[in-house]
Amino acid sequence: MKEEDIIARLRDGDSQAMEALMQQYGPFLRYILTPILPNASEREECFSEVIVRIWQKQAQYDPEKGSWKAWIAAIARNAALNWNRNRKQTESLSEEIPTDTMIPEDILLRKERQKILEQALLQVSRQERLLFYRKYYYMQSTAQIARELGMTERAVEGKLYRLKKKLRELLGGDTV
């Protein structure tokens, strides 16, 4: 089934579209979840949550802002990170109440830093940008990146080192 058909059927509320979604994009979504959630049972629970979120939020997908695959990848990544965050908070609740709440100024500063980093990433090559996203956005291990790109781990580490150095220069010496 084509991507457009799946999207249209999801928007029509067709429950069979969920099956098509899992069949066509399940391996891709699990690929996104695996580095973030190495525990198989947690990963499967999160995967189910991701499918439900896609179902619930499919009306928010806007092709003008990006591709369908990038949109579902972001949902999967964010769900996995939230899963980890919630698990860690639950583990620490027995000790004390977390003081993780960010004040509005911190949120604004974080968004500004994110925009600056995005601008700097646009100034590096596409290959370097993809390497950065694999390591720091999708949290893939160096071994996984090396294996999938047909490189040695040392070569990947070297490229990441040079990329971070280049980004520091582009950002005016700020730490990346």
Rank of each mutant, 00 (worst) to 15 (best):
L149I: 00
A120F: 06
A17S: 06
L108E: 14
L122M: 09
R154K: 14
Q16H: 14
I72S: 05
I36P: 07
M22C: 15
S48V: 02
L170M: 00
P98Y: 08
L130P: 10
L167E: 02
W68G: 05
I116N: 09
E91M: 12
L171R: 04
V156N: 03
R154D: 10
T175G: 12
A59V: 10
Q144S: 12
L171Y: 08
A146G: 06
A17V: 05
G158D: 00
Q24W: 01
R30Q: 13
K164P: 06
R43G: 05
N39K: 06
I75K: 03
A120S: 11
R168N: 13
K88Q: 13
E157T: 13
Q16G: 11
Q140H: 13
E96A: 15
D5T: 13
A40V: 07
L131C: 10
I107A: 15
W55G: 06
K88P: 02
T175C: 10
G13D: 14
K166N: 13
K159G: 00
I7H: 04
R11L: 15
E118K: 12
K2E: 12
V124S: 07
E44F: 08
N39F: 00
K88M: 10
T152R: 08
C46W: 00
V50A: 01
R168P: 01
A70N: 09
I75G: 08
E157S: 13
Y61L: 03
D5Y: 06
R154P: 01
Q24I: 11
G26P: 07
A74W: 02
Q144A: 13
D100A: 11
F28Q: 09
L29T: 08
L171P: 09
L149H: 09
Q144C: 04
P98K: 07
I36R: 08
I36F: 00
T34F: 07
E112G: 01
A40T: 07
P104W: 06
I32P: 10
L160H: 01
A155Y: 11
C46L: 02
T142I: 12
R162V: 06
I54L: 10
Q123P: 03
T99I: 05
Y25R: 08
E42A: 14
L108A: 12
L81D: 06
E45G: 12
R129H: 11
M102R: 15
I145A: 03
W68M: 02
G158I: 05
K2F: 09
R154S: 14
A80L: 03
R147I: 04
F47I: 06
L117Y: 01
I72D: 01
L170F: 03
N84G: 04
R77K: 14
R134I: 01
A120N: 04
T175P: 02
P27E: 01
I97P: 05
Y61M: 03
Y25A: 10
Y31Q: 13
E105L: 12
A73S: 04
P35N: 05
L170N: 06
K57T: 15
N78A: 03
Y31L: 07
V124W: 01
R11V: 00
T99Q: 15
G66D: 08
E3S: 15
M151R: 12
